[in-house]
Amino acid sequence: MNHEQENKIIEGCQAENPRWQKELVLRYSGLLLAVSQRYTRNTETAKDVLQEAFIKIFRYLPRYEPRGSFEGWLRKIVISCALQQLNKKRWKKELSGLDNVPDMAVDPDIFRQMGANELIELIDTLPDGFREVFNLYVIEGYSHKEIGALLGITESTSRSQLTRARKLLQKKLNNVERLRMSI
């Protein structure tokens, strides 16, 4: 979508015009549902989060100032709603037993063959806390300081969660490689 179209949608929604509000939903719902799914795992929950996010988007849009990417602003709202949906107390439960994940190299041929859905499935196998940090850091580009503030954890916890998430993913990717070679 070009910039001009995006501006029309923003201005229409700021004027609370239902036509442009619908246009925004039609244009961005697929992208934002994908964002929501990465945090919620469950498609139905992801849809609930998306609906709630759209309500917030329409509430906040009248005072939106186009300082950055509009799409980035929409994603932040969805992520915020998704994180609110999650129970932050799962962290401690998921930390145990994951300290000794071996560091392994990854064959690029393995993941290059993976499409978006396979990648999402792979990331979904991570424990919730790891997945959240991985998504926020690697895909959304948040800093550890931002992640710490957003999830209510320390920066160092965010770092260690990311490290463990990476190790776990490496292990899983190498398992996939071994499986293919055995076939």
């Binding site: 549902l33 609906q51 309500i55 993941f111 499409g115 895909i139 580009g141 993913l169």
Partner: peptide, 29 residues
Amino acid sequence: FSSFEKYTRQTLQQHHAAIDAEALWANLE
């Protein structure tokens, strides 16, 4: 591993999930 992360970011940032947007709007309206 960073190449895997870069590939994942590029793939997933523009990924669109399948959704009935009309039905979603009907609920939201």
